[in-house]
Design a protein around this nucleic acid. Structure first.
Length: 254
DNA sequence: ATGGCGCGCGCAGCGCGA
């Protein structure tokens, strides 16, 4: 089974890239973040014409998540139960017996901001809910834009980013807390190239210079993280005209 | 070098992303 995550930074703008990518890679499930559209405007017909079902939870301008899948998702859940949040950042569904959870973790802006506090509170709520989800669904994959670079090797300039948002110790601890629930960072299951990132700033020719961060992740429960599992970053869409600033991350699970 | 790029909103220029 092939599962993937991609922050598209507006599904309106990126729909052609998404349709091309689905046609080329044919994942069983693709989690999308930053659709930036209300549900009434979701391009369901185009997605279905590509052979995919679509689940979505969106809002105008900001956030918005979707799960595209070849077979129909069951037990759909939008948002974190018990955590009141106007922002559409979570969507879960069971696809082919695997609990697929799509997340768009808050950015946090800067470590001294209210948005950073919200990010840490949000991550704590996610952690609490995931513990229950894992008990219900041993085969679970958590995919999305985590807005956390887990380790210095996930950062092009660790000294410059030290203590900054996306790299701060509390954020990295929150990421490790998720792993401690019984999840594995799929990208680190096997040897990987140096300087592998998933996001590059639009400015400063950052992609061409590979000034990036690895902040988009696929976490797999132990039941899915067996010997056959693998994970790659697909940088090809970042090279297109008008790209998303994020690249898709793909995992093959057994 | 605190900008820079791209997006949505909405029609100018700002908030936001990471």
């Amino acid at each position: 089974m092939k599962i993937a995550t991609w922050n598209v930074n507006s599904l309106n703008v990126r729909l052609p890239h998404v349709l091309d990518w689905l046609a080329e890679h044919r994942p069983d499930a693709l989690c999308i973040q930053e659709t930036k559209m209300e549900d009434a405007k979701f391009p369901r017909a185009e997605i279905e014409a590509a052979g995919y079902r679509a689940l979505f939870s969106g809002q105008k301008t900001y956030n918005g998540v979707a799960i595209l899948s070849r077979s129909e998702g069951a037990d759909v859940q939008a948002g974190i139960p018990g955590f009141a949040d106007e922002q559409k950042r979570v969507l879960a569904a069971t696809v082919d017996g695997v609990r697929v959870i799509c997340v768009y973790v808050p950015n946090g802006q800067s470590v001294d901001s209210d948005k950073y506090r919200y990010k840490l509170d949000w991550l704590a709520a996610l952690d609490k809910w995931l513990k229950e989800e894992l008990a219900r669904h041993p085969k679970l994959a958590l995919l999305g834009d985590f807005n956390i670079a887990p380790d210095d090797r996930d950062v092009y300039d660790p000294a410059a980013w030290e203590g900054q948002v996306l790299c701060s110790a509390p954020e990295r601890q929150a990421f490790r807390d998720l792993l401690a629930l019984g999840l594995k960072d799929a990208f680190r299951l096997a040897e990987q190239p140096e300087k592998a990132y998933t996001w590059w700033d639009y400015r400063m020719n950052a992609f061409r210079r590979n000034l990036g961060l690895r902040i988009d992740h696929i976490l797999l429960s132990d039941a899915l993280a067996g010997a056959g599992a693998s994970c790659t970053v697909d940088t090809a869409p970042r090279k297109l005209e008008r790209p998303s600033d994020h690249a898709p991350v793909v995992a093959e699970i057994t």
